[in-house]
């Protein structure tokens, strides 16, 4: 009880703490929603809903720890953040595979997307966690560029590559097509928030170049997480509950 009271004492002028708490509750609520709603959709979409629920549940657990870490230390919970992403971002790529499976997606697509997302995360982690004290711009630039290459691959695949082609094929359905396009928008807009956060870390180029504060890192990451993880799940849910998706052949 004492620890709970300590934890909820959020400073009024600390938007980062606010977003940590909001993010935690939003992820937890979304998980409950996806797990319960899983029972209402057709069998072929159950796995997709399960993955959506897992993404938000894993994030909720990590947010639980991250908010405490932040409140106690006032520092960026970099390791916890990347552990969360290492599990959830590849799962988002799995969603692309599961949704396009009805149109004939092969497992190689899933592994390619997972590979690109791992490159994106590992490079991002090295760039952020092994940044020398005070921040090194050359270090963050190099690993940031490598990470961006992984991101660009996922983006290209979602908009023009295999995922887009499968979604637009005759075997797909209008709902899946629309859903994939919406997820592609998430990758284009929602995922683009992460590089902005990365650029705000000590030595990051939004700090050195434009004088932004490194406190913004977690603010950008928390906002992006809430938009992307819950948003991704809701798009999958919309596809699974639409009528033409349920009538299409698996």
């Amino acid at each position: 009880m004492i620890s709970l009271l300590e934890v909820i004492a959020i400073p009024k002028d600390d938007p980062i703490a606010f977003t940590f708490f909001t993010g935690y509750m939003a992820m937890a609520a979304a998980s409950v929603f996806f797990f319960f709603e899983r029972g209402r959709v057709a069998d072929k979409w159950k796995l997709s809903l399960l993955v959506s629920g897992l993404i938000t549940a894993i994030a909720a657990v990590h947010y639980y720890y991250m908010r405490d870490y932040y409140m106690v230390t006032g520092e960026n919970p970099t390791a916890l953040r990347y552990i969360d992403w290492t599990l959830t971002v590849p799962l988002m790529c799995v969603e692309f595979y599961l949704l396009t499976k009805v149109a004939g997606a092969k497992k190689s697509l899933m592994w390619k997307l997972i590979g690109a997302s791992v490159l994106m995360l590992v490079a991002g982690y090295i760039g952020e966690a092994f940044n020398p004290p005070g921040g090194s711009t050359s270090h963050s630039v190099m690993w940031g560029v490598i990470s961006t290459i992984g991101y660009i691959y996922v983006l290209y695949t979602a908009w023009f590559g295999e995922v887009a082609q499968l979604a637009n094929s005759d075997k797909s359905t209008p709902t899946v097509r629309r859903g994939i396009r919406t997820l592609a928008w998430f990758v284009l807009v929602g995922w683009a928030i992460y590089p902005i956060g990365y650029m705000c870390m000590p030595g990051g180029w939004l700090n050195t170049g434009l004088g932004w504060s490194s406190a913004n890192v977690d603010l950008f990451y928390n906002i992006a997480d809430a938009i992307n993880k819950i948003g991704f799940g809701l798009v999958v849910y919309a596809i699974a509950t639409s009528s033409d998706a349920n009538s299409a052949t698996a």
Partner: peptide, 9 residues
């Protein structure tokens, strides 16, 4: 996104 880190840094 590739020019940002290079030129602003």
């Amino acid at each position: 996104f590739l020019a940002m880190p290079i030129f602003t840094s």
